[in-house]
Design a protein around this nucleic acid. Sequence first.
DNA 1: ATTTAATACATAAGAATTTTATGCATAAAA
DNA 2: TTTTATGCATAAAATTCTTATGTATTAAAT
Lengths: 117, 117
Amino acid sequence: MYICFMGNQKLYKGSLQTIILKLLASHSKMYGYEITQKVKELTKGELNITEGALYPALHKLEADGLLDVEVAKVGNRLRKYYKLTERGTKETANKLQEMQEFLKTMQHLVNPKFSVE
Amino acid sequence: MYICFMGNQKLYKGSLQTIILKLLASHSKMYGYEITQKVKELTKGELNITEGALYPALHKLEADGLLDVEVAKVGNRLRKYYKLTERGTKETANKLQEMQEFLKTMQHLVNPKFSVE
DNA sequence: ATTTAATACATAAGAATTTTATGCATAAAA
DNA sequence: TTTTATGCATAAAATTCTTATGTATTAAAT
């Protein structure tokens, strides 16, 4: 199921990596499907990460040495648990700082209070 | 000149249209180069809109009926002044609301205060 | 009992948006 | 007088995401 009904979904472009890293900084160990559900929950359904975006992103973060993977078998089903590497932890701090900067800047740019300057 | 040295430039992906529309809502009439300079000023150099992104974006907004264009000759040089159409004004309100929603959601997602839930 | 929905992974084609790289031209400043 | 700033434009490549599939197990609903 890949229902993306939100009109502003495209605003999230570029922030997926940061979201994943932040979640793993908070939860220490998560698997893909769990991440999608947690994001959906935390955003009250506003953001639905699709598998087509999530899995390639996880693979890239792993390839970049920011995540370690650990395969687990639950019942008869496969799970891939991801967690931050040391480098991943450092990079998370950087990305979160950049995100805060971005949010602050955008907040200022679109602030209804500022008019003609 | 297309110097984009900011590391988090990619976070702005998807928000260019909204930025342009908001500026035109505040300034009533602007030309392309002016927009790049105003954004650079307002963001203290954090965001540098490149021409390769700006001009196609302006053309698309015009094609979508959100902007009207008016050509002016200043000295011997050309300027294309853009302003919001009626539809553009409505769409700006929508996009700004979506942006506020996005910023609020992201703020919550990356808030350092929230940890394991 | 059996179909549907949820869980869990994956990838590939296409779309959208942006960066990078040019190109042209005028005006101001070094 | 060469460089920088102003002012427009487009095209190739990169990036990132959506959409569309594919496979398979488990739980829930009919």
